[in-house]
Amino acid sequence: MSSEKVLLKIEGLHASVEEKNILKGLGLEIKPGEVHAIMGPNGAGKSTMGYVLSGREGYSVESGSAVLDGVELLELDAEERARAGLFLAFQYPVEIPGVSNLEFMKASVDAQREARGEESLSSAAFLKLAKEACKQVDLPLAFLKRGVNEGFSGGEKKRNEIMQMLLLKPKLCILDESDSGLDIDALQVVADGVNSQRSPDRSFIVVTHYQRLLDYIKPDYVHVFSDGKIVRSGDASLAHELEAQGYAWLTDGATETEEKA
């Protein structure tokens, strides 16, 4: 499954929000087909990474680069990044009353297809795909007609994010705490959705606080974030160590290293 090609390469990324430095020299390399888990204490910059990569307003990049499949993301508008193959499953998906899930997803898929020079799907063809995706994440079909995330429970919102991922078929998916607030059944649904999409040319970044999700989505690598960068990387066993010992032993060390440097 390893290949010499790199799908995502982040180098020396410094970014701030409201003049507060959050990312402080982040580097990460992901090959096609790999699953990377990102763990670490609150405030370490895990979610910020997702926002910066996806182009959220208010996050300014001071230096560094992030190249997805040959495309420099950081110079693009948010929609261009999506069209380049990036997908962020939001920690807090936004409610959009009055816009139906189906309409939203059709427009999104059409926009991405158009950007790739493909014809838009017929309504009937898209509806068929959407119904399949909806079933796959175990949401009632009525959710396609409902306003985007409107009145959805926390778990339903997370499953709706996965449904969008299934339809958009991105190259790189960032799951930002897609497990938070989920019961074990919903967790299973989210994990199954992700696992069904694992393929030699699609990669995942799984941001999570808990090792639990990683029992279902087996990562190739685990990275520990602290103070805006990766302080430790390892294989899946690192997640178990973290679960057992917490982060203190890692983050203390990080601070020391930083001071020496």
């Binding site: 182009g55 959220r56 929609e79 999506a82 997908f87 998906p93 959009i96 816009v99 926009a111």
Partner: peptide, 25 residues
């Protein structure tokens, strides 16, 4: 909401039209 929609591939103006419409729809 605009950012959320853009992050799915819609342009800002597409997102605005959709959001506006949703508001009254």
């Amino acid at each position: 909401a605009l950012y959320y929609m853009q992050s799915r591939g819609l342009t800002r103006s597409q997102a605005q039209v959709m959001l506006n419409f949703g508001f009254i729809n």
